[in-house]
Amino acid sequence: MQDTNKFKLGLFVTISLFVFIAAVLSMGVFDSLFKSRAHMATFVEESVQGLNSGSAVKFRGVPIGSISDITIIMESRTVRIDMEIDLSKFKTTLGKNIFTTPSIPAPEFYKYLHSEIDKGLCCRIEPDGITGIKYIEMDFFKDVDARHAGPEFQPGLRNGIFFMPSTPSLMSSLRFNMTEILANIATIDFRKISEETISLLERANKTLNDPRLDNLLNDAETILKKASETVETLNGTLTPEKLDLTLAELDKTIRSIRLLSDGLEKTLATSKIPQTTASIRELSDSFSTGDSSIKMTILKLNEALDAMTDLIQYINDNPSSVLHGKGRAKQ
């Protein structure tokens, strides 16, 4: 057996160990031992497909931690997502060397979260590209309602875990809206619309095939032709000079009408119309009174004529009464 090249073997072992230690350190194996962490949880009412233990948690796009557990709450049919937050990602001082600035302690971080929640901070599931992988995004989402319903969903620190409010993901909202739109579309009676459309088309077809429509069209065509001829005649007749003359005469006429109307206005102003009207009214009243007098007179005259007729009749029957006077009535 050959002798071992111990230098080569030592070099190999040293390089291997160095590479191994470098790889392990760069992978952050001992991070959990030295880094301070905070625990958070949130509840969502949608599918968490694409979200796994170890998925990223980001605050306005900055990776700040990972998901530690995903469980189902049976009573409320919601999904609870537990997260571990690396507090070294949160610094308190601006403008200083970030490597020497210490990370904030967990109670201060929870206090900070509380104040930010009041300003609208909440969690949302976001897709990470087209791969189907998802992550938790913490941000100030505008025009969304963070869920606060129910005591278990109220944000705050309970049993060492900070509960964050959540809001439905964009996809979830989109799916809900789409479902609603589709439900509304489903209520439309397409069959009835189709039948009505067919009926309308049939009627339109009938109307179009009606021979009277052809006559109408012919008449319309004739009228249009005549109108066209008239327009042409007018064009020929109404030369610009004639048109100017006509307009000038029209202008004169309008002026005369205006003068006449001015004169009328003056006459009306001086004609004491109220007094004249009152006189006419009085005259009318007197006519009305005279009319009734005439009626009375005629009635009396009528009565007189009746009496005369009776008298003449009596004389005719008893001529002697002219000499003897009116006798007694026979019994």
Partner: peptide
């Protein structure tokens, strides 16, 4: 152990 080191050299260092 001597043979062990020899095989370590043969399989490890030489194969690196």
């Amino acid at each position: 152990w001597r043979e062990t080191l020899f095989y370590m050299n043969m399989c490890g260092s030489d194969g690196l």
